Computed example of a mutant assay.
Amino acid sequence: MHTADLRALHRLMLVARRLDEEAIALQRQGVFPAYAPAKGQEAAQVGSAAALDLNRDFAFPGYRDIGAAVAMGVDLVAYLATHLNTWHGGLYDPRTSRLAPINAVVGGPVTHAVGWAMGAKLDQTGGAAISYFGDGASSQGDVHEAMNFAGVYQLPVVFFCQNNGWAISVPTERQVAGGSVAARAAGYGIEGHRVDGNDVVAVFEATRAALDRARDGGGPTVIEAMTYRVGPHSTSDDPGRYRTLEDEQAWTDRDPLAVAAKQLSADDVAAAEEHAAAVVREIREGLQASAAPDAAELFSFVYREPTKALLEQQRAWKESLDA
Rank of each mutant, 00 (worst) to 15 (best):
A295R: 13
S290Y: 05
P232G: 15
Q45D: 14
G47K: 03
R213K: 15
V158F: 09
A271L: 05
G89Q: 13
T244M: 08
A137T: 12
V201E: 07
G218T: 00
A289S: 14
N85H: 11
D212Q: 13
T172V: 10
I102Y: 08
M147Q: 12
V152D: 00
S265Y: 08
A209P: 02
D237P: 07
G73W: 06
V203S: 00
G189V: 00
F32C: 06
A291Q: 15
V31N: 06
D237N: 09
A258F: 06
D135S: 13
V279Y: 05
L14D: 02
Q140W: 09
P232C: 05
T96R: 15
M13Q: 09
L14N: 02
A68T: 12
A277W: 10
D322E: 14
A16E: 08
V105C: 13
F32D: 03
E297G: 12
F149P: 05
G136S: 14
A296Q: 15
E274P: 02
S236A: 15
V114M: 07
A51R: 05
R243Y: 09
D238W: 04
R241V: 13
R28V: 07
C161R: 05
A278Q: 14
H144S: 15
V114R: 00
D57W: 10
A81Y: 13
V230H: 13
P239I: 01
D57F: 10
E42G: 08
T235W: 07
A289I: 03
A23C: 12
V201Y: 01
F149Y: 12
